[in-house]
Amino acid sequence: MKGVIFNLLEDFITDGWGEQAYEEIFAQCPLQTKEAFVGLNSYPDADLLTIVAKAAAQFDISVSDAVRAFGKYCLPKLVAKYPIFVAGHRHPKTFLMSIDNVIHVEVRKLLKDAEPPRMFFVDPAPDQLILRYVSKRQLCPLVSGLLDGTAEYFRTPIGHTQTQCTQSGASACEFHLTFENEVGAFA
């Protein structure tokens, strides 16, 4: 996992629960990484999950909810950091469909050793989308959170239901999305 995600996680906890809370959580985590997380470097996925699990326990919420909330938090932060990736989009559907072909391609170019997930889409209707998420990290709650954040950013409610999950033996995590406004409704 890239350091930028660790830094966002630190911001997420700090913004929500304060510097001291993060320091306490961080101090209690038996991490493989001993140095500070730097955005461009890669770190073990297990370290991220350790911090999330410790934070979830600290704030008495499930890990899944914690990851989803973190995903929702990340979206506007990433948009602020890389505004070019949303600049051409007026609807969340077109933005989501550009993630795998555009955003993740650029991520691989900019960040050495980056292993972004694969996302595949089926477009059954103008106001619907089927998203298939494939990642060895199995962070489908993070995808849910990012969808929440996307809906909020574009001010377009997105109803999303996860219909299958790799943790239940499926080959991919699948989300059925419904948009309140069709693409082009804003035009």
Binding site: E19, Q20, E23, E35, A36, F37, V38, L40, N41
Partner: peptide, 22 residues
């Protein structure tokens, strides 16, 4: 608070060093 800030400052310094190396 001072201890929290000191640890945060230390991490920032480490990040700066790492970024210079990068």
């Amino acid at each position: 608070i001072e201890g929290v800030l000191r640890r945060k400052l230390l991490r920032m310094q480490q990040r700066i060093d790492a970024l210079e190396t990068i």
